[in-house]
Amino acid sequence: MRIVRTVADLRETIGGWRAAGETVALIPTMGALHEGHLSLVRLGRDRCRRTVATLFVNPKQFNQASDLAAYPRTEESDAEKLTSIGCDLLFAPDAAEMYPPGFATNVSVRGIGDELEGAARPGHFDGVATVVSKLLLQALPDVAIFGEKDWQQLQVIKRFAADLNIPVTIEGAPTVRDADGLALSSRNVRLMPANRSKAPLLHAVLQRVAVAVRAGADPVEAVQGARRELAAGGFDPIDYVEVRDGTTLGPPGAGPRRVLAAAWLGGVRLIDNIPG
């Protein structure tokens, strides 16, 4: 696997593949790779002849400097994992390459980007949309693949890619979970053992909400019960537990629904979602 750090080298490599008639899948990441990320790369290999993973800890999507500073940087081991599963290229730029002096553009997705995560983390999705739009345009892959664990992020990306006519297919991939149901996340390593044993309650509660709502329960009452159960299980604070439209993230209607939650456990913020 080749590692490149400039947009020029990225485009040169992909241009050579294009000249040979090869298709390209892009898998954007912030590193600290786990099996969830690797499953996206494997899906990219199934979809296209070539796979490109990106590794960039994007400062524009962090609300707190301390959270950015604490985010794990594990490029060497990440590269080893990507090499072991046959990834073709790793694009690992630094901040100056992505945001050179004078950079003044912001991509903002109103409505869908203002709800839930957008409300809990103001400006977060502006940072996501800005960096992902750059990555899509820098690489211009056939397909870009994102995990469904960040469901709202996936919908934001689909929205701006369509709005801006970016000629890339945006594809979601199923959430990868531990055997006890906890969604894999780079943040999970920060859970103390006692809290790690409590963490699967988040997924279990979402499952109970989904079952209740499908059976005709009032979503508001189901969500209130979920919040009480999470609080009793040690989650504090609870940013949100909601049943929403699966595409717009607005109030649920006749279409597919999504049950989403974000809550803190021992100082670690966990998010999860399942079909409603």
Score class of each variant (00 low, 15 high):
residue 98 M to L: 13
residue 211 V to W: 13
residue 4 V to A: 12
residue 43 L to G: 02
residue 50 R to S: 04
residue 66 S to A: 14
residue 123 G to Y: 02
residue 130 T to K: 15
residue 121 R to Q: 04
residue 255 G to M: 08
residue 146 F to C: 08
residue 265 L to P: 01
residue 110 R to Q: 07
residue 104 A to N: 15
residue 254 A to R: 12
residue 107 V to E: 03
residue 132 V to N: 03
residue 275 P to Y: 03
residue 118 G to H: 01
residue 159 R to T: 11
residue 116 L to M: 11
residue 2 R to C: 04
residue 254 A to Y: 00
residue 235 F to Y: 05
residue 159 R to K: 14
residue 34 H to P: 00
residue 273 N to V: 08
residue 229 E to S: 15
residue 40 L to T: 08
residue 145 I to E: 07
residue 202 L to S: 04
residue 211 V to L: 14
residue 234 G to S: 05
residue 215 A to M: 06
residue 221 E to H: 07
residue 161 A to P: 00
residue 207 Q to E: 13
residue 228 R to Q: 08
residue 183 A to V: 01
residue 127 G to M: 10
residue 78 D to C: 01
residue 106 N to I: 12
residue 190 R to P: 00
residue 259 V to F: 09
residue 130 T to M: 09
residue 96 A to R: 14
residue 251 P to H: 10
residue 237 P to T: 08
residue 150 D to I: 05
residue 13 T to L: 09
residue 236 D to A: 14
residue 23 T to A: 10
residue 265 L to I: 07
residue 58 N to F: 01
residue 244 R to T: 07
residue 192 M to Y: 02
residue 33 L to D: 00
residue 68 L to N: 02
residue 153 Q to M: 07
residue 156 V to L: 03
residue 9 D to W: 04
residue 170 I to H: 02
residue 56 F to K: 09
residue 4 V to L: 13
residue 193 P to T: 06
residue 166 I to L: 13
residue 8 A to K: 15
residue 161 A to Q: 05
residue 79 A to P: 02
residue 26 L to P: 00
residue 45 R to I: 02
residue 20 A to T: 02
residue 246 G to S: 15
residue 216 G to L: 06
residue 89 L to M: 14
residue 212 A to Q: 08
residue 271 I to N: 07
residue 100 P to I: 04
residue 165 N to H: 06
residue 96 A to L: 12
residue 233 G to C: 04
residue 184 L to S: 00
residue 6 T to Y: 08
residue 221 E to C: 05
residue 34 H to C: 00
residue 256 P to K: 15
residue 53 A to P: 02
residue 243 V to Q: 08
residue 8 A to T: 15
residue 37 H to T: 06
residue 270 L to G: 01
residue 17 W to Q: 14
residue 110 R to D: 06
residue 231 A to P: 00
residue 135 L to N: 10
residue 21 G to K: 09
residue 36 G to D: 00
residue 51 T to N: 12
residue 66 S to I: 07
residue 62 F to W: 02
residue 207 Q to T: 13
residue 230 L to R: 03
residue 87 C to F: 06
residue 194 A to Q: 11
residue 11 R to P: 00
residue 51 T to I: 06
residue 260 L to W: 02
residue 161 A to F: 00
residue 243 V to F: 01
residue 272 D to I: 09
residue 255 G to K: 12
residue 173 A to S: 15
residue 29 T to F: 02
residue 46 D to N: 12
residue 15 G to K: 09
residue 52 V to M: 11
residue 22 E to V: 04
residue 77 S to K: 13
residue 234 G to H: 04
residue 186 S to L: 05
residue 257 R to V: 05
residue 38 L to V: 07
residue 101 P to Y: 04
residue 23 T to N: 12
residue 219 P to D: 12
residue 39 S to L: 04
residue 138 Q to A: 14
residue 179 A to K: 14
residue 247 T to N: 10
residue 271 I to M: 10
residue 91 F to S: 11
residue 182 L to M: 06
residue 92 A to W: 04
residue 95 A to C: 06
